[in-house]
Design a protein around this nucleic acid. Structure first.
Ligand code: MN
Ligand code: MN
Ligand code: MN
Ligand code: MN
Lengths: 230, 230
DNA sequence: TTTTACTATTAGGCATGGCTAAGAGTAAAT
DNA sequence: ATTTACTCTTAGCCATGCCTAATAGTAAAA
């Protein structure tokens, strides 16, 4: 089945660097410092890995300019992201994990499961297209649905929106939002966006008001809804 | 929760060596060569690891005499065996893996799952005490039920026995036995045990005869049953 | 244009876990 | 008691990834 280009899966480290470059770099290049911060490693380690990824054909690296993924690098990154998000879905929906516990476990398991496992798990889950945080799950062929959500602080006051995604990974943040049911799928009406300190106040479906500081607001993404639901 | 003796989980390599010593050594010591063969590594690598396991307090090692597990080493080994067997059960019963595919996947996953995952999976599976090959699953507290099965070739001719375990890991062997339904739980009557070449002939529940050469016979373990069922 | 403040790279180490080749130990056969 | 056939260890090497400390590059401010 594998021709002369038989490709062994990247190591845990290499995989996590690819994901970090993908997450941090957006369309352009990822800087040494940003990747170092995200992975909690020394920046010298990142410089070293950037050079190695270049040699492996997974990234393009220019000294002092950062690294960006090649097509192969992007494919590997998305394969891991697919696994990660499917695993989080499984842990939450079938093993009774809480919203804030799933990430750490998925971060390790994503490197240990095979393609076969991944696709059987996807079937077991009914081929979901979103994970528990509202993040889109890349398809098996590497396609990633474009996101049409936008940041909560860009919503005009008075508009009613549906929370579509909460950028996660911090357990304390997830606990806080989870307890208040500010989770994907929830409808909220934006009552105030205060320019001064960035605090956004929303009213949820039960009429409860929530005032959220900038660090929280930045994690919440929403989609417009046709009509006001309150 | 973790006192001053906070113990980090063993690496994949260390864990696999501990399992190998446990499997190969029985009650006594495991030899360099036996472990090397089982793990497909050079014997020099094993000598090196034996010394490291000794330093880590996981094994007792005497040069030229082999290694045996300490209490802590045995605990780590059994923790991995528990995970391995629970994972195989999950893969087979819920993800549609075949009998011969589960081992390889479990061999990797056993090192990536947490204790929390393991216990939630056990609950999800209904706390099974056997894996798909009939091997006993160690309890969460490290207890391992004594096996009361014995080798197929020790059965007196004419006796009816239940297959209780098939020592696995070779996909071709498992395919062969799986196709003939010579799997744990199956009843067979021993029709002939030929001393000359070790071939054993059994009749299964459907009256079909199977003649098995020594390499296969050695993998099959059975338990007595009260009465003849044919 | 020169400082200055970051940011990034280089240099040198360390731990883990593999390998091969060479030599030493063990134990059975002679 | 030797020889012989293995088995096991030692020595030396390599790749992967991480670290710190020192140095160099970049770009904004002065
Ligand atoms: Mn996550
Ligand atoms: Mn990861
Ligand atoms: Mn197995
Ligand atoms: Mn393993």
């Amino acid at each position: 089945m594998n021709g002369p280009t038989a490709t062994k899966p990247p190591s845990t480290s290499v995989g996590d660097y690819l994901k970090a470059i993908w997450e941090v770099g957006g369309s352009g290049a990822a800087s040494t410092t940003d990747v170092a911060d995200r992975l909690s490693v020394a920046s010298a380690s990142v410089t070293n890995m950037f050079a190695r990824l270049q040699e492996m054909g997974l990234a393009k690296y220019e000294r002092y300019r950062g690294a960006s993924l090649t097509e192969r690098g992007r494919e590997e990154a998305l394969r891991l992201v697919r696994r990660h998000r499917l695993l989080e879905t499984f842990l939450l929906e079938h093993l009774g994990y809480s919203w804030q516990e799933v990430h750490e476990e998925a971060e390790r398991l994503e490197h240990a499961v095979s393609d076969g496992f991944t696709e059987r798990l996807a079937a077991f889950l009914g081929h979901p297209d979103q994970d528990p945080h509202g993040a889109p799950i890349p398809a098996a062929d590497g396609t990633l649905a474009a996101e049409e959500s936008f940041p909560l602080d860009e919503v005009p006051v008075g508009d009613c929106v549906r929370i579509s995604r909460v950028k996660h990974e911090d357990a304390a943040v997830l606990s806080f939002l989870g307890e208040r049911e500010l989770v994907p799928g929830r409808l909220v009406e934006v009552k105030e966006v205060r320019a001064l300190d960035g605090v956004v106040t929303v009213e949820d479906e039960d009429g409860v008001l929530h005032s959220l500081g900038r660090p929280l607001v930045d994690l919440i993404f929403v989609r417009g809804v046709a009509a006001d639901v309150n």
